[in-house]
Design a binder for these strands. Structure first.
Lengths: 244, 244
DNA sequence: CGGCCCCTTGACTAAAATCAACGAAAGTGG
DNA sequence: CCACTTTCGTTGATTTTAGTCAAGGGGCCG
């Protein structure tokens, strides 16, 4: 199996040259499986490698002193994992697999080399990180200023959009590969309250549920309730340097 | 007035070459003043330039549909503003001045050029953005999983640390250049509740207040209450490429 | 079959928001 | 320089939102 998952994400943004594709494929030469529930990197432990997620669903989270968990981000195929760990001696967050996964590990220096040799890819890595950053600020605003229901709605919309980038067959229904506790840890709620919010969304006809499968029945109303924006849209990359 | 504020931030991390310093100074050739309360960039409007903040205190925020505001970040001298706006047609956040400020505006293409010509600076811009990203995730965890008191304590510690990087004379006391409403919009609380939390911190002897000036009286206890980490510490940049 | 994990629901509690009022301080305009 | 307005901080009373505690049910796995 060849091809670079990260390159696929980037090639939605610009047309890559052969040399650029080759450089990205080199990052994903190696492969490794990660079992559901396994931890790839643990918070406060020495930083290891970086990864590209090739297959499966992962998450990054932090644990607070009182034992509570905040899920920072869900990770989908094509996502680059552990970029922030690259810059620290100790990892600022834990990376764990929510399903059986395949990742491609690579070294800090590999990314450093790539950035030196391919200035345009370097800029695109920055773009990718900024998209992530803006998504984080969306979630920050959601946690700070929106209701429990809005946060759950936003999470559902976001999950659907992210799943669709990999699997075009996803339309308005998808398997929610998360427990309600995980949804709670992502939205800053308790599992009990997540349950109530899902029920409420269901009663209002905004979603339907059937054994872990969620259907978005009224996307317009959900998006309105959630203040949701897909941050992979509306990009302007006209300023990118010419390919080397 | 010469010298690059952003270069000063970076030179705390590695020793810059003359060429690198010159390149960074070029970004800050121009200067512009911004009045207290003025807006440099407005959410959803066409993205303009990027900036380096040279002097003063600014903030970035978003407004939600119901009119509530979430402050995403406070900006200090040496910070680069609007990097995320660079990649979008429309700005994802508003940039506003909390005090009279001086900024150096520059063009997307100027940063793009710099990244092409100076691979190591390119990597350092990425590092800078990742520090910002990790700080955002700290705040995300604070909003999602910590009490009102802890959030206010964390904000005070963070402000102090950021002020100290510019002004070494700041020890445990500083002018809180924010209204309680602004503190609330940053921490996801109401101004009224912020007031009560400040009072409580004061009553417990963790801080003292006098006409807008805050003194941290028990930093240890504050940091414990707040789960606070200074993200400019603990970096490992040994992987950075050689300077060009 | 039994145990565990996850979902569900009700009753109750705690945390933070809301509403309202007032005083002090800081600008503003004559 | 003074009257006026506005902003900001403070406080109490009350309401709303979400958390906590507890119990039971369904499905899956060993």
């Amino acid at each position: 199996m060849a091809g670079s998952c990260f390159a696929e994400v980037l090639s939605d943004l610009v047309e890559l040259t052969g040399a650029e594709q080759a450089a990205l494929e080199k990052l994903e030469e190696r492969q490794r499986t990660v079992r559901r529930g396994a931890v790839l990197q643990r918070e406060n432990e020495k930083c290891g490698e970086l990864y590209v997620l090739r297959k499966g669903l992962m998450m990054s989270y932090v644990l607070l002193d009182d034992g509570s968990r905040q899920i920072l981000r869900f990770l989908f195929p094509g996502d680059m994992l552990g970029v922030s760990s690259m810059i620290y001696r100790e990892a600022p967050e834990t990376l764990a697999a929510l399903s059986d996964c395949i990742v491609s590990p690579f070294d800090r220096s590999a990314l450093s080399d790539l950035m030196t040799r391919h200035p345009r890819l370097s800029a695109m890595v920055l773009v990718y990180c900024q998209v992530e950053r803006v998504s984080l600020t969306d979630r920050l605003a959601a946690l700070g200023r929106t209701s429990a229901k809005a946060r759950v709605a936003a999470l559902l919309l976001d999950l659907r959009d992210r799943l669709r980038t990999t699997d075009k067959s996803v339309e308005d229904a998808f398997q929610l590969g998360l427990t309600q506790e995980e949804v709670g840890d992502a939205t800053g709620l308790t599992a009990v309250h997540v349950n109530r919010m899902l029920r409420q969304l269901e009663e209002e006809g905004l979603i339907a549920r059937d054994s872990g499968r969620v259907t978005l029945r009224d996307e317009r109303a959900l998006a309105r309730a959630a203040n949701y924006v897909n941050r992979f849209e509306g990009l302007d990359l006209s300023w990118l340097p010419r390919p080397a």
